[in-house]
Structures are given as C-alpha cells and as structure tokens.
C-alpha cells in the first residue's frame, strides 16, 4: 500500500462501523479516493472479506459465552 500508513486512514474511517460487507467496501473505497491511496492487488473487497471474518468469529460463540452485552430482551 502506498503510502504505507494509508492503513491507519482506513482504520480511523472504519471505527464504530457495523460489520456489514457492503458498507465496509464503500467506506474503504471512499478512503482510497480521498487520500489517493493505492493498494494494487488488494482491492477494498478483500479488506472487507477479511474484516467480515470478525463477524463469523463472534457468531461462533454460543450466546451464553458471548463476551459482549446483549440488549435486554434479545438472545
């Protein structure tokens, strides 16, 4: 990636976002455009695929073991 610290721009932009593939792709493309970041061979979709694996992981936890608080009344 050029510049190499473009990664931190993506990080900042994605903080607080919900794990939704389409939204993440769109946001990363927006960051690439805004800062002129080049990431040859690794398109925004690949980053989004990687990030979405987080969701798979959180979903693998049985509800009683989920380490994050669930809203009241929901599983």
């Amino acid at each position: 990636m050029v510049p190499e610290d473009g990664v931190s721009k993506i990080e900042t932009a994605l903080k607080g976002m919900t794990l939704n593939h389409e939204d993440i792709v769109e946001k990363i493309k927006e960051v690439f455009k805004k800062y002129g970041i080049q990431s040859p061979g690794i398109p925004a979709e690949d980053f989004a695929d990687a990030i979405m694996k987080l969701k798979e992981y959180t979903e693998k936890y049985p509800p009683e073991l989920r380490p994050f608080a669930e809203p009241e009344g929901k599983e």
Partner: peptide, 15 residues
C-alpha cells in the same frame, strides 16, 4: 485483522 469488537461494531482495529 486484529480488531476490538463490541457487539457487531468495530471499535478499533489494525491490519
């Protein structure tokens, strides 16, 4: 990707 996750939200991450 190393991410700090709250629910299904990214709180802080690094890749």
């Amino acid at each position: 990707v190393t991410a700090e996750v709250i629910g299904d939200k990214i709180f802080g991450y690094y890749d």
